[in-house]
Amino acid sequence: MLRIKDLHASVEDKKILKGINLEVNAGEVHAIMGPNGSGKSTLAEVIAGHEEYEVKKGSIELDGEDLEDMAPEERAHSGIFLSFQYPVEIPGVSVTNFMKTAINESRKARGLEDMPANEMLKLIREKSELLDIDRKFLSRSLNEGFSGGEKKRNEIFQMAMLEPKLAILDETDSGLDIDALRIVANGVNKLRSEDRAIVVITHYQRLLDYIVPDYVHVLHDGKIVKSGGKELAVELEAKGYDWIKQETVA
C-alpha cells in the first residue's frame, strides 16, 4: 500500500531524511522507533505533505500513486491519516463540527453530496461507542482545554470517523499515563483491519506492548538502520539506542 523509495527530505537546507526505504502492506502494523532527532516525526509529516519540508529525492507512493504533487488535503482524501503528536486547538469549533466538515470535504472531493445529518449522527454514535467516548466530549471545542489523554483519544476518534487506508500515529503515547495509554491503544487495536495499514511512531517500547506490531524499524540519522519483527523492539528496550548508534558507526 505504502511504498517509500530512497526518500531524502530537508528543512531549510538541513538534511533530515537521508534515504528512507519502506514498504507497508494493507493489514500490517509497522512500528518506527528511534532516538530523538532521528527523523521520525519528519517522516510522518513528509508523508502527510507538510510544506515545510522539501523532498529532494526519492518517492512516496500510495497504492501505486505518486504523492509528490498532491496537497496535504488531497493526500487526506486519498486515505492518509496522521495522528498528531501535538494536536492543535481550534477554539469555538466543536469536535462534531470539525468532523462533519472533514468528512464532507472528503466526500466533496469524491464528487459526493454532504453526508445526511442522520447518517452523520449514526456514525458518530457508532464510533464513540466503539472507542468508549462520552458524547459530551464531542461538543467541546477541538482540543481546547483537553488533557493529554483526551487529545490523543480525540485523534483516534477522528481516525475512526475518517476510516483511512493508512494511519500514521506519531508518538501517540507521549504525555500519557499508563491508564490513558491503555485506552488509546485499545482504540487503535479496534481499528486494525485487513485493508488498513498502520504505522506507529514511538520512542518507547511500552506502547508496543499494547499495539503489537508485525514489523519494527529503527530510524537513526535519517535512515532505517535495522528492521525486524516485534522482538526487535524488546531488544532495543533492553540495549538502548546507543547499541544502534554504535552498530551503525561500526
Partner: peptide, 10 residues
C-alpha cells in the same frame, strides 16, 4: 496543516 491533514483545504 492540521485541518489540511483532515481533508479540509486552506
Amino acid at each position: 496543516f492540521y485541518c489540511n491533514q483532515r481533508g479540509i483545504d486552506t
